[in-house]
């Protein structure tokens, strides 16, 4: 038929991002874990480190050290965890199969998932840092805003792709939450997200953290907030290392991605176990 002209890819992509955002906002438990959880950590850490002098001789709030790390944690929850679990559940429910039967290009679906992950991550990080600035008195030089943004975009894009890879390898929507948490939380402890292991940690711990992309993300992001950082706040090697993981994630996502529920998982059974 001659009267068929497809909608533009850009318009479709924006629409998909909006659609994914809407799904997220209307899933209170996901919003809770992604946005409220890190905020609770921030408040708890604020109470724990109240009056602790983390930088002797300097006028630095303790939050200067942990707020950026928790912002990274929020961003990774919004991307890796949320994308991985969400996509696996929609696959179980047959939503992905329905989508595959429409003319929506597959890369635009994926792009919508990633774009929405980035947007939600940005929201989460902004909330964390806003509380940090307003309540806990953290500081940042204006000329470090751009490096922080660049690091952030590379980081959340990487973890969105890793989230898609997680969804691709997760056997079902029910196992995806366990898989996400089992892979994220231990790594988070060696990646300067919750606790800083910057001051002479055991070599193996250091190495373990260096392997995974989360430490690269949190260290590069922290550089923009580090009161002792003399050099540039750009950390090209850390960004590159994240890029390597992003590429690996994209390859796994593309090769292993499944649009249909695995046999036996179909028919809407996935929703029961969101985390």
């Amino acid at each position: 038929m001659s009267d068929r002209t497809s909608p533009s890819a850009v318009a479709l992509l924006f629409r998909q991002v909006g659609y994914q955002n809407r799904l997220f906002i209307r899933t209170p438990i996901a919003a809770m874990f992604t946005l409220v959880f890190p905020l609770i950590f921030l408040v708890l850490f604020g109470a724990i480190f109240e009056g602790v002098d983390l930088a002797p001789g300097e006028e630095v709030s303790p939050a200067q050290f942990y707020a950026p790390g928790l912002a990274v944690f929020a961003a990774v929850s919004a991307t890796y965890t949320n994308v991985g679990i969400g996509v696996a559940i929609y696959r179980d429910e047959g939503v992905l199969k329905r989508i595959r039967g429409t003319p929506l290009p597959r890369w635009i679906y994926m792009g919508g998932v990633v774009g929405s992950g980035v947007a939600i991550a940005a929201g989460g990080a902004v909330v964390m840092l806003a509380v940090g600035f307003l309540v806990y008195g953290i500081e940042m030089d204006a000329d470090r805003i751009l490096p922080a943004l660049v690091t952030f975009v590379v980081g959340v894009a990487t973890f969105s792709l890793l989230g898609l890879a997680l969804a691709a390898v997760a056997p079902s929507g029910q196992s995806a939450p366990a898989l996400a948490n089992a892979t994220l939380l231990p790594v988070a402890f060696v990646s300067n997200v919750f606790i800083s292991v910057r001051n002479e940690p055991p070599a193996w711990l250091d190495l373990l953290g260096d392997i995974f992309p989360l430490k690269a993300f949190s260290d590069a992001f922290f550089a923009a907030f580090d009161p002792f950082e003399e050099a540039s706040a750009y950390k090209p090697w850390l960004l590159l290392w994240m890029g390597v993981w992003a590429l690996a994630g994209a390859m796994v996502a593309v090769r292993k991605f499944r649009w249909e529920p695995s046999t036996g998982a179909g028919g809407g059974g996935g929703r029961r176990g969101r985390r």
């Binding site: 068929r4 047959g94 939503v95 199969k97 039967g101």
Partner: peptide, 21 residues
């Protein structure tokens, strides 16, 4: 590809609908 699926309609035996919508 896409231009084919643009011209067909599919009602699967079992397919999920986003419960959030």
């Amino acid at each position: 590809g896409q231009e084919y699926r643009d011209r067909i309609g599919i009602v699967l035996q079992e397919a999920g609908i986003e419960r959030e919508l």
